[in-house]
Design a protein around this nucleic acid. Structure first.
Lengths: 228, 228
DNA sequence: GCCATGGTTCGCCTCACGACGAAGCATGGA
DNA sequence: TCCATGCTTCGTCGTGAGGCGAACCATGGC
């Protein structure tokens, strides 16, 4: 009899070891807001090669810290659940400085939930609302392969500056529902989602926050959104 | 710009790395109940040599996960604060099984708080109460070097089967206050604390729990305690 | 069917970490 | 003063984890 609490210890070391590597920690903290990110995106964020990232993601997957969803040729990784996020936060809270950062963190998380970019298109509460309004107003109609643009939609998108012909020409799915991981409902992804987001940014509907992927809906954007 | 959240990441990896090693995890979980344990005790619990344990403890100290108190030739290590305990618990909660164990853990922690052994003497609520009663009843009186036994004390200790002469002959401090890390008040340590605890166990005041260091105060013990 | 792109697998290298024994300090008791 | 004990420091060794490039699958668009 050498060690007590054997079972607990094993669990702790397994999870802790997965979080102990800088590369994996960068990946995990990037996923902290609940989004799902593609493997390549995570590799870029962590600053490692695709091969290295793949190995790390496989280990995180094996340790049940993340789950993966295949979507086309992408694999979207996401934290398994709030326990993982919770553990990451409690670890970050240890050492030098105390509670100050946690307030900032909570505020930042809230901002990210309100509106953010998901890779290159709008997500968060605002993203989900936008898709709701576009579909509800028959601007977009569900199609076999995502969404198609209705008559009213063509007019509105043109007004917003979206070049539909160019969007259709992109080497990319046209308009697809993308599951929003904080709202658990879809927002608009695909080439159209990206182009529309770009135009809305240009027209001042949103402003970039401190985190770069965090967005805030401006007054102008709010009135534009309700007018849809 | 490669990695976001740089500061957080660093903190996470540092703390996580310290918890990721099985030896350190064993030490940390042994300290989870808030006690302070001597370096040698931790080495034994983790199943490593004194040299190895020393190196690990130095790292834990450096990472601010534990603090140390020198007491004679012993060095008592203890978790820095509840954040550390919290992080350990949240890590243990990840992976395979969900909440079931946490209930068991909470129960066990409560049992340990009520009564336990601190190396070889009584600690926890019962340990603190015992010292309170012994001092309150003038069985023990404070001395320069801890406690001395009063007239009434000699009689009572004899009744309980404590061989005072033998205790005084031990190569060890006679009777000292030992800070109880869950109650934050002293219980009785030293040779007398150990001998008295041994006698009380023999007389059935306490029964060993599942964790071996956990004790439960029996009815017999309860009446004996109040009669002091 | 062909190419471009996103991910994974494979093989190799490096280096940091953990383990131990022996030796070195400190403390406390006789 | 001397010894026993508790813990740390030092030197050495072995293993394992992380990093990369190249080659290998899978998917989607033309």
């Amino acid at each position: 009899m050498v060690v007590e609490h054997v079972a607990s210890d094993a669990d702790i070391t397994q999870a802790a070891a997965l979080m102990a590597d800088p590369t994996r920690a960068a990946m995990l903290t990037s996923l902290l807001d609940g989004r799902a990110l593609a493997a390549g995106e995570l590799a870029r964020l962590a600053g490692v090669s695709a091969a290295t990232a793949s190995a790390h993601l496989a280990r995180l997957l094996d340790g049940c810290l993340v789950t993966v969803v295949r979507q086309g040729r992408h694999r979207y990784y996401r934290l398994t659940g709030h326990e993982v996020a919770h553990a990451l936060e409690s670890l970050a809270r240890i050492s030098p400085r105390p509670a100050v950062r946690s307030l900032k963190g909570a505020r930042q998380a809230r901002l990210l939930r309100e509106a953010r970019t998901c890779y290159d298109h709008l997500a968060g509460q605002a993203g989900v609302e936008l898709l709701d309004r576009l579909v509800g107003g028959k601007c977009l109609v569900e199609a076999a392969d995502g969404y198609e643009v209705g008559e009213k939609g063509e007019r509105i998108l043109a007004e917003l500056g979206v070049d539909l012909a160019a969007v259709r020409g992109a080497r990319r799915r046209f308009a697809i529902p993308c599951l929003d991981w904080t709202e658990r409902r879809p927002h608009l992804g695909g080439a159209l989602g990206a182009a529309l987001t770009e135009r809305l940014m240009e027209r001042g509907w949103f402003e970039r926050g401190t985190t770069r992927r965090a967005l805030t809906l401006t007054e102008h954007g709010r009135s534009g959104m309700t007018a849809l």
